[in-house]
Amino acid sequence: MKWLINLWRTLNRPARYLTLGTISISAFIMGVVFWGGFNTALEATNTEQFCISCHTMKDTPYKELQETVHWSNRSGVRATCPDCHVPHNWTQKMGVKVAAAKDIYGEIFGVIDTPEKYEKKRLEMASRVWKQFDKTNSQTCKNCHDYKSMNWDKMSPLAVKQMKQAAEKDQSCIDCHKGIAHHLPDMGTSRAPELIAQVGHGVSPVDGQEYYSALTKELFEGPTGDKDAGLLNIATEVKVLETQGDRVKISIEGWRKRIGAGRVIYKDFGVNILTAQLTKEAAKHEGTIRVFEDKQDPMTGLTWQRVEVDIWTNKNYLLQNPDMLWSYAKDTYNTACSVCHTQPAPAHFDANTWPGMFQGMLAFVNMDQDTTALVQKYLQEHSSTFDKSGHH
C-alpha cells in the first residue's frame, strides 16, 4: 500500500516547474488523444467485419441478409450491419453499444451458438431490435429512405396508397417491414398479416376452389399487363376460376349500391363491409360485373344490386380458410384496444356501426394498414348483424 500512498501524494502535490498554460495545453492534447482513440475504437466496432467476427452472426443473420434486396439490387447500394443497427446520433449509438454487451455475453457463454438455440432466441432478439427501431422512429432506415424523395410514379397503386399514408404521419418503417433483412421469427398468435400471408405464399390455387385473401391485393383486368383494376380487400372470400402463370381469375360475390359506376363491392346487402374496390374503367368493362337482382334498402332508400365480379389477381397470398386471420385480429383487438378501457365485444354493435367506432380508437394504437383493415373487418363480420346472441 506504500507505493499507492506515495503515488497519491505525488498527484496531489502542486507543480513546481509547470505553468498553468503548460498544464492546460498538455491536458488538451491528452484529451484529444484519448477522444480520438476512443472514437477510433468505437468506429472499429461499427464495421461489418467486426459484426460477423462472431460465427453465430456470420452463419445465420449475415447469410439471411445476402438473400435480400439490401444485399444485392439494381442500384448496387448495399446496406451493412451498422447501417441498420447503429444510429448516427451519438447518444443513441452509445445506448445501442451498451445493449450489445448482452449479445457478447450470449456469444461467449454459448446462449445462441447452435441453430436450434438461435431459433429459440430469435423472437426475443427480434423484439428487442424492433423496440429500438420504434424508439428512434426507424431513423436508421430513414438515413437512406426519405419519404420526400420517393418517386410515386414508379410504385404500384397499392404501394402508393400505403406509402403516402405512412408519409403523412412519418410512420416508423418497422411497423410494416419486419423481416425485410432477416428471417422472421415464429410469432405464434402475434403474427401480423404479412406473416400469415407467407402461409399462403406457396399455395397453388385449384380451379373451382374457394380461398381467402391474406393481404390487400392488387386487381388486374387480364392475366398479363400492369393495368390497374382496383383492390381486393384482406380476408375476402373468392373462388378461383382459372390460373395463368402468376395470376388467377377469381369470382367475387357481393352487393353494390346502384349509384355512380357501382365500383365498390360489399359483402352483403345493406352492410358496408368492403370486399373490393374496382377502378371506374374496370367497373364499366363488359363482362367484369354481372347483376342478378335489385333490392331497396328500407333504412336508406338506396337500391342495392347483387353482383358477381370476375377479375384477375396475383395467385399468391390466398388462404384456404380465414381462421388464422380472425385469430390474429381477435388477439390484436383484445390487447391493443384494451390499453385505455375495456373494449366492447364484437357483437355489441352492428356491422355498419363498427367502422365509426373503430376509427375513433385508431388515434391511440399503432397498426399497419392491413392490420387496421383486418381488425375492422373482424369486428364487422362478428358483429350483431351476424351474431344474434345479443349484446355482451
Rank of each mutant, 00 (worst) to 15 (best):
Lys267Asn: 07
Thr371Ala: 08
Gln49Arg: 15
Trp90Ile: 10
Arg128Trp: 06
Asn89Lys: 02
Arg9Val: 10
Ile234Val: 14
Arg191Gly: 04
Phe386Leu: 02
Gln320Phe: 10
Met30Ala: 02
Ile52Val: 04
Trp312Ile: 02
Leu231Lys: 09
Ala101Glu: 03
His183Ala: 08
Thr136Val: 05
Leu302Met: 05
His341Ile: 01
His382Thr: 01
Thr91Trp: 12
Leu18Lys: 14
Thr236Cys: 01
Gln380Met: 06
Glu119Asp: 12
Ala336Arg: 00
His201Leu: 06
Ala351Leu: 01
His392Pro: 01
Lys120Pro: 04
Val203Asn: 08
Gly356Arg: 00
Ser138Val: 14
Gln305Leu: 13
Ala167Pro: 02
Asn321Gln: 08
Thr236Trp: 00
Ser149Gln: 09
Pro355Leu: 11
Trp152Gln: 06
Gln49Asp: 15
Leu123Glu: 05
Asn12Cys: 01
Ser338Pro: 09
Asn334His: 07
Phe358Gly: 00
Ala15Ser: 09
Gly262His: 14
Val86Glu: 10
Ile174Leu: 04
Trp8Asn: 13
Ala126Pro: 05
Thr136Ser: 09
Gly188Asn: 07
Leu65Glu: 15
Lys330Ala: 09
Arg13Thr: 05
Ala235Asp: 03
His391Gly: 08
Val339Met: 00
Gln92Met: 06
Thr45Met: 11
Ile108Asp: 05
Gly36Trp: 02
Leu219Ala: 08
Leu215Val: 10
Glu218Gln: 01
Asn272Met: 14
Trp326Leu: 14
Tyr266Lys: 13
Ala261Glu: 13
Asp175Cys: 13
Tyr266Glu: 15
Gly76Met: 04
Lys267Tyr: 14
Phe364Met: 11
Glu210Lys: 14
